[in-house]
Every structure is written in structure tokens, then in C-alpha cells.
């Protein structure tokens, strides 16, 4: 089996978005997700000697990140355990006995399965984004994921609006093709 090599100089540009997306879908807190990603890179750096090359760098970093996320939940759960649990039941006598229905899960709420599928879909899109030329991926992310307007992107990257639309067109075409092969 081919051995994978480790090169921390490329970690931020290659894996930060993937790891961030992975984290935020699990912790649902943007600041915390950034902290966990940052801690993952630093932990990876410290334990580089343990990298055997049997898995890809990304897989190895994700395994570190998973442990960080578990630690994060352990920490908040131990804090929760110390707090008093309060539940407000309806005291209205006419609706007495309806409390159980009140607490039945909202059918319009996202189910765990939906969330899992969406998370896998997000990973599939990130995998396709990684195959795009760097500039295309950057412009696509700024426009589509971060929702920046055309003018902001053009000023930030010093490109014209027509350049931007050409880049977007190429990125969308390549992504759609990649998703067609890998998702459907």
C-alpha cells in the first residue's frame, strides 16, 4: 500500500475548511469550531512523529479532531450535570394530561438521519471542492457558501466582475460533474 506523507505547511490551505465544516456540523458553534480546528492542527503538529502514513493526512487529522470534539462534549456534559434541570409543565387544568404530547418531537424538526445525510453531503461537496483549482474553489466558497456580494469579492481578490463570473461558471460546471459522479 502506498505510504502517505506528512507536510504541515499545507494543512491550513488544504484541510481547514473541511475540518471546520466537519466540526460546525457537530458542535453548532462557530467560535468553538474554530478553536477545535486550531487545536487539532496544533495537536497534529505535536504528534507528527506518530503519523505512520497508512491513512491520508486528512483522515489522520480528522481522527485527532474527533477526539477533540468528544472531549468538548465531555466537558460541557460534566458542567451540565452540575446544573439544576428545570422543566415547565402546563398547570392549566383543562389541558391536564396533554403534557406528554407537548413534548413529542416536532415533526418539522430535522431528524438525526437528515443531519447525518446533510453532513455527508457537505463532505462530498468539500471533496469535490478540493479537486478544483485553488482560485476557483476560493471564489466559489466566497460567493456561494459565505454569500459575499460580487463587488466585495472583486475588490478582495482584485478581479473584474466578468472574471468572477467566468471563474464561477468553471467552478460550478466542474463541481456539478464531480457531484454527479460521486453523489448520485
Amino acid at each position: 500500500m502506498a505510504k502517505h506523507h506528512i507536510n504541515p505547511n499545507n494543512w491550513i490551505s488544504s484541510y481547514s475548511d473541511y475540518l471546520f465544516n466537519y466540526t460546525i456540523s457537530r458542535v453548532n458553534d462557530r467560535d468553538m469550531a474554530q478553536d477545535l480546528v486550531s487545536e487539532t492542527f496544533l495537536a497534529g503538529l505535536k504528534s507528527m512523529a506518530n503519523f505512520k502514513g497508512e491513512a491520508s493526512e486528512r483522515t489522520w487529522l480528522v481522527s485527532i479532531l474527533k477526539r477533540k470534539i468528544i472531549d468538548y462534549y465531555r466537558k460541557i456534559n460534566s458542567n451540565k450535570g452540575k446544573a439544576e434541570v428545570r422543566m415547565n409543565y402546563n398547570s392549566d387544568t383543562e389541558t391536564e394530561g396533554d403534557w406528554m404530547e407537548e413534548r413529542v418531537a416536532d415533526p418539522f424538526d430535522k431528524t438525526a438521519e437528515d443531519k447525518l445525510e446533510n453532513s455527508e453531503l457537505g463532505n462530498a461537496i468539500h471533496n469535490c471542492l478540493e479537486k478544483l483549482p485553488k482560485k476557483q474553489a476560493e471564489v466559489f466558497k466566497m460567493k456561494t457558501i459565505l454569500g459575499h456580494d460580487t463587488e466585495t469579492i472583486c475588490n478582495g481578490l482584485d478581479i473584474t466582475a466578468s472574471n468572477l463570473w467566468v471563474i464561477i461558471h468553471r467552478a460550478r460546471t466542474a463541481l456539478a460533474d464531480c457531484m454527479e459522479k460521486n453523489w448520485f
Partner: peptide, 23 residues
């Protein structure tokens, strides 16, 4: 439709910059 469904996220430029600087 797929991108919207996925709730895809990525780092903002300054967020990536902060992580990069620390790293």
C-alpha cells in the same frame, strides 16, 4: 439545491488567517 441542503460551511478569510497565524 445540494449546496443549500448541505448547510455547507467554510472559514471566513480573517478566521482562516487567525488559525494560520497561530499555527
Amino acid at each position: 439545491e445540494l449546496v443549500e441542503k448541505s448547510d455547507l460551511n467554510c472559514l471566513k478569510k480573517e478566521e482562516r488567517h487567525n488559525i494560520k497565524k497561530q499555527f
